[in-house]
Simulated assay, not measured.
Amino acid sequence: MSPTPEPVVSELIELLSLERLEADLFRGQSRDIGTKYVFGGQVLGQALSAAQATVDGDSGRRAHSLHAYFLRAGDIDAPIVYDVDRTRDGGSFSVRRVSAIQHGKVIFFCAASFQGEESGAEHQLSMPEVPRPEDIEPAPALPAEVMAKLSPKVQRWLSRRGPFEFRHVYPRDELNPPKRPPFQQVWFRLCEPVGDSPELHRALLAYASDFQLLGTANFPHGISYYQPNVQMASLDHALWFHRPFRADDWLLYSIDSPSAQNSRGLARGQIFDRHGRLVASTAQEGLIRVLPTEAKN
């Protein structure tokens, strides 16, 4: 039997466990993690959970890709309804289209594709040579006098204890960001062990994949989400699952940003397990605006 997860982990699992209203209609709650609006990873994880719930478990088909668009900011204080369309159940693949609805409007939609196990050609790129997670010290807490100078929004974000632990191979001071090339590697894992359900681990990875990704596009410009005049929002998100993995064991997120233009940044990620297997890939484009005057929170 798996150890009982700590409250912060069990809260996330509960968040991803949707209430079924009808055969293809689900309701999810939101969790305030310090962001102004609903965290994009939450909607990704919940939408994938909804799609997975409509695929016959006996078919052996599991999600291999997800392509999503964020249309409107989500309200933290209101539930989200997920409407699943069973677009196709073919001989080898199943496709689901999920719309996330809040206050009567679609705030997000995605398409997820499912496939059973098949044998065939296989290759992968190698994992970057980086220190092991055990050799990287956890990030220290900010001193109280530094926290006191930050905006209430940033204080809430930095003071939270999230369900995932992150260890940056090359840490960056997000409060005083230097300019540097748009690359980073981050080890991450769920803080406590959970069960063996592949569907749960996929939903957890969808949730976590929204951390760190878009921020990499800020690196060459010496800006950060924490700065009051920087406005950022996810526009779309793609996620591919390649091989089995566990979200409660260390995974390496290797990210680069090939372009930023027209107030949009593009970031790509490869996710490896600690044995060097490429288990997932991501891509995201997001809005990045640097306002001429301080933005109002």
Rank of each mutant, 00 (worst) to 15 (best):
G90E: 12
V81C: 03
A68I: 14
H64I: 00
L66F: 13
I80C: 09
I76E: 02
G74K: 08
G74D: 05
D77I: 01
D75Q: 10
H64G: 01
S94Q: 01
D89N: 14
D77H: 12
D83K: 12
H64S: 02
L66Q: 12
G74W: 06
P79T: 03
H67S: 10
A73H: 07
A78G: 00
D89L: 07
R61P: 08
V84M: 02
F93S: 09
A68T: 13
D75Y: 01
R86Y: 00
L66I: 14
D83Q: 14
D85S: 14
I76A: 02
R72T: 03
S92Y: 14
D89H: 05
F93N: 13
F70K: 04
A73K: 13
A78S: 09
F93K: 03
D77T: 13
V81Q: 06
H67P: 06
Y69G: 10
P79R: 06
Y82V: 09
D83G: 01
H67G: 05
D75T: 13
T87K: 04
S59Q: 11
Y82W: 06
G74F: 10
G91M: 03
G60Y: 11
D85C: 05
R86H: 00
R61F: 03
D77Q: 13
H67M: 06
A73F: 11
G90R: 11
H64A: 00
P79F: 06
D75H: 12
A63C: 15
R86T: 00
G90D: 08
G60I: 13
A78E: 08
V84K: 09
T87G: 01
G60D: 08
S65G: 03
D75E: 13
L66K: 05
F70P: 05
L71S: 04
A73D: 13
A68Q: 09
V81R: 07
S59P: 11
H64Y: 13
G74I: 12
D89C: 04
F93V: 15
L66W: 11
T87H: 11
L71V: 14
L66H: 04
V84N: 06
D85N: 11
V81E: 04
D77A: 15
D75W: 05
L71P: 07
R72K: 13
G90L: 10
V84D: 02
F70E: 07
Y82F: 15
G74A: 08
A78P: 00
Y82E: 05
I76V: 15
F70M: 04
S94C: 09
S59E: 07
D85Y: 01
R86Q: 00
F93T: 12
G60V: 14
R62G: 10
